[in-house]
């Protein structure tokens, strides 16, 4: 998916994450801050990058502010931000396809 405009998904509440995405400079640029950085930083980064890869996003600036979100929440927030940036988040989502 081609990131078309800046988009945000999620919140800063506990167990959630706030994901912001905008068009990039030819590559993925990920900025991550987390309340559990020392314990889970690497895993969070992997989950975010994997999710972007699954959605074929190769060019984006992504910022994740994590507040202890589970993997399933991180995925949901990244996916929602990407679909929002393409104005495609409201219907005909490929559940079970690239969303899995």
């Amino acid at each position: 998916m081609i990131i078309q405009k800046p988009a945000v998904a999620g919140t800063l509440e506990s167990s959630d994450a706030l994901v912001s995405i905008e068009p990039g400079d030819g590559k993925i640029e990920l900025t991550l801050t987390s309340s559990v950085m020392n314990q889970y930083g690497r895993q969070i980064r992997e989950t975010v990058l994997e999710t972007l890869d699954r959605l074929s996003v190769t060019d984006a600036k992504v910022s994740v502010v994590d507040k202890g979100a589970l993997d399933c929440t991180l995925k949901a927030r990244v996916e929602c931000a990407v679909f929002r940036s393409c104005d495609a988040s409201e219907k005909d989502i490929p559940w079970g396809g690239v969303i899995r």
Binding site: G10, A76, R77, C80, E90, I93, I99
Partner: peptide, 11 residues
């Protein structure tokens, strides 16, 4: 509403 669906699916 859109975000809630993504969250629901993965839950």
């Amino acid at each position: 509403k859109d975000a809630a669906r993504f969250s629901l699916y993965h839950a």
